[in-house]
Design a protein around this nucleic acid. Structure first.
Length: 507
RNA sequence: GGUCCCUUCGUCUAGUGGUUAGGACGCAAGGUUUUCAUCCUUGAAACAGGAGUUCGAUUCUCCUAGGGACUGCCA
């Protein structure tokens, strides 16, 4: 086998936001390309003029950029194999569509969508299935059944037509899929797919992808399992075009399934399950579809969790950087069966990546929210705070609720904690504690602790009871990092102030 | 319905012709943190079923069942 340069493409159609199944396909293509020192190409498959959605192409680019998948060739990046947008390659497809008709691998068909719908409906009523195929094509309106003259007349009259592939009879088509192994089909069960439509002068996906993959010298086609059934058509197309010797190798990825219930993950599952299905937010007519970015996920966490949906390196390592993934990725280790998406584990991945980030980096991310809340604090202080609490959160957005007391006094006190901890001699003790703290010259955690301990001993009170009440006063609840550290960080005046406020306001 | 694909704990998965079938998420219990979270320990939890091959199948083969995808002038 000659060594061919690895060139793979991610080929989404700009019909809306990219969904994470598509993102994972892109990721596996990217990992495969980089692993083998190859090229990662982004091709826009906009051959359905009726489904074009404004902004979708930009969304795709932005998503790839956010996730750190660098595109080597594409509409924005350029490259030697352009154009990378199918709607700009019309003449190319037309040429090959014509060639297929000329070589008797395809034919013109004039049946309207309405007529075909009617045939399908009729067949269904009889509990049968209608297919435009080798068994029915003779009875339909096409250049195989109509006279040459009539075909000419219809075309000259401007009647819309399509070009359909003339699927040969009884031919075994075998493919050696990189993830599934050998898969065999028989052409007898295949239909005559539309290859080209006169209405918008564009090919359908099938023709376009074969022509482009060939012309762009794509070495491997890595795509979702939903494409497996069209593999025989694609192979026949390569054969018909005489390109079979340079046909790319196929790899069909398992689907990502819904967290619960049946079927593949769909755009709606996110709302129902409370997790994002898209990389970035997407504006809908009636609201927004949540994106991972806006939901607080780190791109590296998304990449990590997606990589492990259907692939694993065979070791017990679960946390990876993009570079490690590139290093370790191998298409042979991709699973065959569909993987259910687990929102809980997705959060866990984010938490793991969050904990691994430096306090400084997290502090910087957190500063935006702090400013919004009116707190201008230097990075050093914020970093220290973040370091104390980062292990309690999954997202940067959860930081505030865990550490607001480092920035402002509690405005209310957790009723449950009040009931449990703020009773008996406690309020009186707190009042007596204030002057003691006031007298401290050194405001450090251990010093404060010693002073309080001494006081507790003198009064013969329970350590736990007092400390929890003290926490309630400083924090407003029964949570947070080490209490003495909190006291030290907010300072002597503030600590006494909060004690005072608690005594006055609770009860 | 037809074609094709798939099947190990609830979920993501490792794994082998002979293993106490391993890990992770989640769940439960205990410990640490004088509290919460983290963390640590422990626990419950799986080879879809049936034949066959074999001294021996979770592993190989076949069948059944279940699940999935496709079945558009969508991609």
């Amino acid at each position: 086998m000659t060594t061919r340069k690895v060139r793979v493409r991610f080929a989404p159609s700009p019909t809306g936001p990219l969904h994470i199944g598509g993102v994972r396909t892109a990721l596996f293509n990217y990992l495969f390309a980089k692993k083998h020192g190859g090229d990662f190409i982004l091709r826009i498959e906009d051959t359905d003029s009726t489904r074009f959605v404004k902004g979708a192409e930009e969304y795709i680019n932005e998503s790839m950029e956010w996730l750190g998948m660098t595109i080597d060739e594409g509409v924005k990046q350029g490259g030697d194999y352009g154009p990378y947008k199918q709607s700009e390659r019309r003449e190319i497809y037309k040429k090959y569509a014509d060639q297929l008709v000329a070589t008797d691998w395809a034919y013109y068909a004039f049946d309207t969508p309405e007529e075909l719908d009617a045939l399908r409906a009729q067949a269904e009523a009889e509990k049968k299935t209608f297919a435009y195929d080798m068994h029915t094509r003779k009875g339909l309106k096409n250049s195989l059944s109509l006279s040459e003259n009539e075909v000419k007349q219809r075309m000259e009259a401007g009647e819309p037509w399509v070009i359909r592939f003339k699927m040969p009879e009884n031919t075994e088509v075998k493919t050696n899929d990189m993830v599934r192994g050998s898969v065999t089909f028989n052409t007898n069960t295949l239909d005559d797919k539309v290859l080209y439509k006169s209405a918008d002068q564009l090919p359908t996906y099938h023709l376009a992808n074969i022509v482009d993959d060939h012309m762009m010298d794509i070495s491997h086609v890595i795509r979702g399992e939903e494409w497996l059934p069209s593999v025989p058509l694609h192979i026949m197309l390569y054969r018909a075009l005489n390109w079979e010797d340079t046909m790319p190798q196929f790899a069909h990825l398992p689907l990502i399934l819904k967290p619960t219930g049946k079927g593949k993950l769909s755009k709606r599952d996110g709302d129902k399950g409370g997790f994002p299905v898209f990389p970035l937010n997407w504006q809908l007519e009636d609201g927004i579809a949540a994106g991972y970015r806006e939901s607080g996920y780190f791109p590296e966490a998304v990449v990590n969790l997606l990589a492990l949906l259907g692939w694993n390196p065979g070791t017990e390592q679960e946390l990876f950087s993009m570079d490690e993934l590139i290093q370790l990725f191998s298409i042979e280790r991709v699973n065959k069966s569909g993987a259910r998406f687990d929102p809980d584990k997705a959060r866990w991945f984010n938490q793991q990546h969050l904990v691994r980030k430096s306090n400084e980096e997290l502090a910087e991310l957190f500063q935006a929210e702090l400013k919004e809340r009116g707190h201008e604090r230097e990075n050093g202080y914020v970093s220290e705070v973040v370091g104390l609490i980062k292990e309690r959160v999954n997202f940067v957005s959860e930081l505030w609720e865990q550490c607001s007391f480092f920035f402002e006094a509690p405005v209310e006190y957790d009723a449950k904690v009040v009931k449990k901890r703020w009773k008996g001699d406690v309020p009186a003790f707190m009042t007596e504690l204030m002057p003691v703290l006031e007298q401290l010259d050194t405001w450090q955690a251990d010093v404060i602790k010693a002073a309080i301990a001494e006081q507790i001993e003198a009064k013969e009170l329970g350590f736990g009871l007092v400390m929890n009440a003290f926490r309630l006063a400083l924090v407003g609840g029964g949570f947070g990092p080490d209490l003495m550290t909190i006291a030290e960080m907010i300072g002597k005046e503030e600590t006494i102030q909060r004690l005072k406020a608690a005594v006055e306001n609770i009860g």
